[in-house]
C-alpha cells in the first residue's frame, strides 16, 4: 500500500490536485520524463500519471492529476493518509537530458506538471531554459512559481488574456523566436491538439521538438499494445518506447481518435458524486 502524505489543490475548475505519495522503490530510480501507473482499489482502472517530482531521501513521488472522468475524480478526492492499492513504476524511457544549448519547455494546461521535472533537469544540465506555460485562464494556470524559479525566462500565455500574453503557447513561442533567440530543442507537453500545433509550427523551422504522448494504457509494460501510436512509418508502444517521441513524426490525428475510443463507456462510469472542489466528476 502506498500512502498519500500530502495533498494540494492547484485549481478548481477543472479540479487539479497534487499528491505526494510514499513509494520509496520508485523514488530511488525515477528520472524526469517517466511515469507511474496507479490503482486505488480492487475495482479501479490502472491509471498512468507522469511523475511531477520526486524526493529520493523521503522516498516520495509527486503526481498532479486533472479530473477528466471517473478514475481521475476518485484519485483527486483522496485525502492525506489514504492509500493507493497499487503504484508501479518508474515506467517509460527517461527524457534525453543533456546540454543542448538553449531549450524551450512548453507546458499547456495540466502539461505544466509533467514538463516541470524535465525543465529542471535540463537547467541543471547547463541549458539556457526558456519556459512557456499556458492555460485557458489565470485561475487554472498551475505551478507558475515553481516554473519561474527554475527558468531563465518565463513566458505565460492565457486564452482569455487574464495573465501574460493573450493567446496560445504557440504565440509565446513565436514571441521568443521574434526576439531572435536560437532554439536548440523544444519539449512540449499538454493536450494533443497543443502538441500538434507546436510540432506543426516548428517542423518548417527544423527545431527538434519532443512531445510526451498520453494514449490509453493498460499494463504499461509492453504487453497489451493498447498504447500504440504511429510514429513515422512505425508502430510504437508509448509505454515502453516512449512516452516521449519526435513531435515531427507522430500521427497526432490518429492518436486523438484512439483517445476517444471508450467515450460511451467513460460516460457510464461517471458518478454524480461531487469531487472536493465542488465540481461534479466532469
Amino acid at each position: 500500500m502506498y500512502r498519500v502524505v500530502k495533498r494540494r489543490q492547484l485549481a478548481s475548475a477543472p479540479c487539479i490536485v497534487l499528491l505526494e505519495v510514499e513509494a520509496p522503490a520508485v523514488a530511488a530510480k525515477v528520472e524526469p520524463g517517466q511515469f507511474v501507473i496507479v490503482r486505488m482499489d480492487e475495482q479501479s482502472e490502472r491509471i498512468p500519471l507522469t511523475v511531477m517530482d520526486f524526493d529520493r531521501e523521503k522516498g516520495t513521488i509527486t503526481i498532479v492529476i486533472q479530473d477528466v472522468g471517473y478514475s481521475s475524480a476518485m484519485i483527486n478526492s483522496m485525502e492525506e493518509g489514504s492509500y493507493f492499492l497499487d503504484f508501479v513504476g518508474p515506467l517509460g524511457v527517461p527524457s534525453e537530458i543533456e546540454n543542448h544549448g538553449t531549450v524551450v519547455c512548453i507546458g499547456g494546461g495540466l502539461g505544466v506538471a509533467p514538463v516541470y521535472p524535465i525543465a529542471r533537469a535540463l537547467k541543471e544540465a547547463g541549458n539556457k531554459l526558456i519556459s512557456v506555460i499556458g492555460a485557458r485562464s489565470a485561475d487554472i494556470l498551475i505551478l507558475e512559481e515553481e516554473m519561474a524559479a527554475i527558468s531563465d525566462e518565463l513566458v505565460i500565455a492565457t486564452d482569455d488574456g487574464s495573465k501574460g500574453i493573450k493567446g496560445f503557447v504557440t504565440n509565446g513561442l513565436e514571441q521568443i523566436l521574434a526576439q531572435g533567440t536560437k532554439i536548440d530543442a523544444i519539449w512540449a507537453i499538454g493536450p494533443v491538439v497543443m502538441m500538434r500545433s507546436v510540432a506543426n509550427f516548428t517542423r518548417p523551422l527544423g527545431i527538434k521538438t519532443i512531445v510526451s504522448m498520453n494514449p490509453i494504457m493498460v499494463d504499461g509494460t509492453g504487453m497489451c499494445g493498447a498504447c500504440r501510436l504511429t510514429v513515422g512509418d512505425e508502430t510504437k508502444f508509448a509505454c515502453v518506447d516512449g512516452p516521449e517521441f519526435d513531435g515531427h513524426l507522430v500521427d497526432f490525428d490518429l492518436a486523438m481518435k484512439r483517445l476517444s475510443f471508450y467515450k460511451d463507456e467513460e460516460e457510464r462510469a461517471k458518478i454524480s458524486k461531487d469531487c472536493d472542489c465542488g465540481k461534479g466528476a466532469q
Binding site: Q43, E45, R46, Y70, A269
Partner: peptide, 17 residues
C-alpha cells in the same frame, strides 16, 4: 487482459471498459 485481469466483463462495477 481488460476482460480477465481487470474484470472488464463486470464493467461498470469494475471500472476498466
Amino acid at each position: 487482459t481488460r476482460t480477465n485481469l481487470m474484470k472488464g466483463y463486470r464493467f461498470p462495477e469494475y471500472k476498466t471498459p
